[in-house]
Amino acid sequence: MKRPRRRRGGIPLRAILPNLVTALGLCSGLTAIRAALLGEWEAAVLLVLVAAVLDGIDGGIARLVRGETRFGAELDSLADAISFGVAPALILYTWSLNGIGRFGWLVALLLALFCALRLARFNAGIDRTDPPHRPHGYLTGVPAPAGALLALLPLYLWFWSGLPELRMPALVAGWTTIVALLLVSSLATFRPQFRLRQRIRFEAVVVMVALAAALVAVPWTTLALLAIGYLVSIPLSVRSYLRLRARLAATGGIGIASAPESEDPEPPAAQDTLL
């Protein structure tokens, strides 16, 4: 009698590429920490941005090659906790917050801890009294990459203007605390759509090229404006979500969740793209 063939463990070969991109993002975040410890502030910030770009494409690559795995999702969360929680916290601490001693370290800890809590919150799905609804296009709170980019806003402005007031520990501590609270908030925020497709519109190519040119020519001005623009979008997204809930409730719409969609819209085996 022939015995059934045992299924070997491991991950499929097609999952190597997206996991490699995630690992590169993790290396970028860790190298940003090294740059911060050496006082290389611009390099540190740029490395966090590289990690954010890699985080934005790893999930798309995983879906493109059908390489979504639970292993990839867990690796992605670990990379995000370091690149968008620990790295920005240490950058801000070594740049400014160490000027107020233990209180500055407490603020840095809050940013790193709240980023990790955000990731754990949605990985566990503890807020999902109803299933998430992707068509509505919202996230709960500020996603981790956006939170990191918002937290570093004082550095963009400092690189841009050189004003010493922007490095004041009290000012940086207050801003960092606000961003940390946004990470774990229940505010509805717009969910950006970054999906790799075989064809994209010419207008999208124009926008991406213009953005790339702006980042090369005037990086800190561009990043500051992007961060401020995203901050302005938060009250707009909250109002939009509340109107959507009221409209669906009035028309008897089915399936609006009691909380906006989390950043883990894929099945558990899928790779997260916006934590």
Rank of each mutant, 00 (worst) to 15 (best):
A269W: 05
A15C: 12
L157W: 06
G162I: 13
G60P: 06
T31A: 15
V218I: 07
L46T: 11
P145I: 02
L75G: 02
D58F: 15
I100M: 15
R167N: 02
T22I: 09
L110H: 01
L223A: 15
G85K: 07
M1W: 02
R14W: 09
P268Y: 03
W175N: 03
C115P: 03
T69A: 09
P219V: 06
G60Q: 12
A246W: 04
V48L: 06
V45L: 02
P132F: 03
L155I: 15
V209S: 14
G72A: 05
Y138G: 01
V206G: 01
L223D: 05
Y138Q: 08
G59Y: 10
A227P: 07
N123D: 09
I234M: 03
F114D: 11
L153C: 13
A217K: 09
T94A: 14
R199Y: 12
P268S: 06
G72I: 03
A15I: 11
R199W: 13
T94I: 06
I200P: 07
Y156D: 07
A81F: 03
R8W: 03
W41E: 11
P4F: 11
A43W: 05
A250Y: 09
L13D: 01
R247W: 08
D127L: 14
L225W: 00
A62M: 00
D80S: 14
K2M: 07
R239Y: 04
V207Q: 10
E68Q: 13
R167I: 02
N123C: 08
H136E: 05
P143Y: 13
S77A: 11
A249T: 07
R195P: 08
S240V: 00
A144F: 13
P88G: 12
L171H: 13
V218F: 11
S237M: 05
G137F: 12
W95P: 06
G39E: 10
E165P: 01
L75F: 05
L215R: 09
G101P: 13
R102L: 14
V86R: 12
L17N: 04
V209Y: 11
